[in-house]
Write a protein that binds this DNA or RNA. Structure first.
Length: 298
DNA sequence: AAAGGAACCTGTTGGC
DNA sequence: TGCCAACAGGTTCCTT
């Protein structure tokens, strides 16, 4: 389901009910998702306090009070639903038709409430119909060395992404620009939607070789691409992500960046750019849909 | 080494 | 209306 902006939105929704709270009870309803859950997954969490949450690429990472790390990935269809214990209507909804189907609720975190106040904590359900998501634990101090984080590239919203980085990373690369931007080993966090959108905004064809924006005379081109990537992701985060089929933030609110799509899922529609009379096309690159305007993306 | 495709799963949608 | 193929926001693994 999610690319970086959606993961960021989900993480921000989880933080208020998870940070500082303790895992009082953890329900683990199947052996795993894309990978098996670690041994004694639930018991190892129970009783632990979650110190902090953060996002790295499309991963949500939690720091536990014993130094261990919790790693979560939403895959294509992962979703968290928070029901605060005091809100019976939300809890009730979970057991009715609204919200994701209960058969796909694979893990439930029952968190403690505020200290001393005797208030009930949140019930956080993780749903994932396709089960491409991941949940794993890292030994104390080992989270940053997790095998799934080892090989991923830079944060697109961090200080490392600039024209010079692309110069180095794309040098002599023959893969299409679309594929190179999707490659999590180079830049981690971009997905199919936001790559299409950023390339459209940058006026660059998804089919051109990544290496074709390298060189002394292409500096402005690289800078423009960087700017559009950062702007697109930033705007999407501000909008709470994109709601396609059923994406919702953990609190159930809907992102609305999909209304700002220029090309994604808009095959046959006119290019939204001023003065461009092109028509959005859909092609398939490395097995995935690419949407672009052949007129203004060169 | 790098690029492309299959595989992992289930649900939804669009065409006939 | 019904059935089936195609497709879906991700990532890894396996061939070329």
């Amino acid at each position: 389901m999610p690319e970086l902006p959606e993961v960021e939105t989900v993480m921000r929704g989880l933080a208020p009910v998870m940070e500082g709270a303790r895992f009082e009870r953890v329900e683990v309803r199947r052996a795993g998702l894309r990978f098996p859950f670690p041994p004694r997954f639930g018991p190892r969490l129970e009783g632990r306090r979650l110190i902090s949450l953060r996002r790295r690429a499309k991963y949500i990472l939690g720091q536990l009070d014993d130094g261990a790390g919790l790693l979560m990935h939403l895959g294509m269809t992962g979703r968290f639903m928070i029901a605060s214990g005091t809100d019976a209507s939300i809890v009730g909804r979970l057991h009715n038709q609204a919200g994701p189907d209960a058969v796909h609720e694979h893990v439930v975190f029952h968190m403690s409430g505020a200290e001393g106040a005797g208030t009930q904590g949140a019930r956080i359900g993780f749903f994932d119909p396709r089960r491409f998501g991941v949940m794993d634990l890292a030994a104390p101090g080992q989270l940053d060395k997790h095998r799934l984080l080892k090989k991923i590239g830079i944060e697109p919203l961090g200080p490392d992404l600039d024209a010079d980085f692309l110069q180095t990373a794309f040098a002599a690369k023959k893969a299409p620009l679309k594929a190179a931007l999707l490659d999590q080993r180079i830049i981690a966090g971009l997905g199919n939607i936001y790559v299409c959108e950023a390339l459209h905004r940058a006026g660059l064809s998804p089919m051109r070789a990544a290496g074709s924006i390298v060189g002394p005379r292409r500096g402005a081109m690289r800078a423009r691409l960087v700017e559009k990537i950062v702007m697109t992701l930033g705007e999407a985060i501000e909008a709470g992500g994109s709601t396609l089929r059923d994406f919702a933030a953990a609190d159930g609110s809907l992102g609305y960046f999909q209304h700002n799509f220029g090309v994604y899922d808009k095959e046959g529609r006119p290019c939204p750019n001023d003065g461009c009379h092109g028509t959005v096309r859909r092609i398939v690159q490395s097995g995935r849909s690419t949407f672009f305007c052949p007129e203004c993306q060169k």
